[in-house]
Design a protein around this nucleic acid. Structure first.
Lengths: 161, 161
DNA sequence: GGGCAAATGTTGCATTTGAAACAGTTTTCG
DNA sequence: CGAAAACTGTTTCAAATGCAACATTTGCCC
């Protein structure tokens, strides 16, 4: 079988190419890693989150979170405080500088993403959206039995905010 | 905006989750990295390739190819020889051991991928296929002007085999 | 209550990765 | 012909990453 016809390969390659287009913006122009970008994204919307909420809404493991948060704190884009109720946990909050930076970056990243997506016929775009959602459900279904962090976003059922 | 609703995020997360399911097979059970897997995949189909053909059909850069090939050679899964016609180039060929290993791994990887894809309704699977192909074209269209390795597989036009 | 297991975040260490420098070969052009 | 430019694969060095150990805090169970 030709590798170009192997669907998992095609998906991985396309996803990487798409991602690279966005990293070129928030990475090169704003100095954010992918993990930092995701944390800022979450915090910009929520304002502040504790570690548990964050773990539920992110596809990052604890080491990635810890390191990305350290860097964001060094850059004064977020603050980290130990929670009084459970001193193992942390409360993450975005700073004004973090909000500003994220908003500027998001404008450009969103524009770049839209530029690519709008280069697709509307029907194809709808198909992509539908297919990705279905694949996510399929992975969850097939891997749900086991425990391992097989997939990603909070699925309807477990949690609600 | 909620990050879970941001399409680029969803695509990246789903693609990673899918990929992780397959790496769990060829990585954990057969000790192959993603790059080694891809090289073996190409060579199993072609038998042997020189560096130029390989560069065209792979989404790996020259450093990744060099390192993956070194490891595959150490494991005696491929052979590397300097080309007589142009001593800058290499000829890569899969060994019998490499073929055996790849075929066994491919059986399991393919089965795992099919298990997930077949957990999707046929219509959704078709939508995914269509959407991914369209996204690939869109990225190529938007980035084609510039030179950088923006995307992936050989598109109709440049080469033929 | 008190010790033991579980949970959480951080750190250390070895490996991997990426970008640039490098070495060898070929092509170009005067 | 011959020097310079271009091309290819490898190596080097710093940064990123993954995994396991670690330290701290909490919950459990007697």
């Amino acid at each position: 079988m030709r590798i170009e016809a192997f669907f998992p390969y095609r998906l991985a390659v396309v996803a990487e190419a798409f991602s690279r287009q966005l990293v070129a913006v928030y990475g090169r122009e704003y100095g954010l890693s992918r993990e930092e970008w995701r944390l800022l994204f979450l915090l910009e919307e929520a304002g502040s989150l504790d570690s548990l909420q964050l773990a539920q809404r992110t596809s990052l493991d604890k080491v990635q979170v810890s390191r990305a948060a350290s860097r964001l704190e060094e850059k004064a884009l977020i603050t980290r405080t130990v929670l009084g109720s459970d001193r193992r946990l942390r409360n993450y909050a975005i700073t004004e500088a973090g909000r500003d930076l994220f908003r500027r970056a998001f404008d450009q990243v969103g524009a770049r993403a839209d530029e690519i997506l709008e280069a697709m016929p509307a029907r194809d775009r709808a198909a992509l959206e539908r297919g990705v959602a279905a694949l996510d459900r399929a992975i969850a279904r097939v891997t749900e039995p086991e425990t391992g962090h097989g997939t990603a976003f909070p699925r309807p059922g477990p949690i609600e905010d």
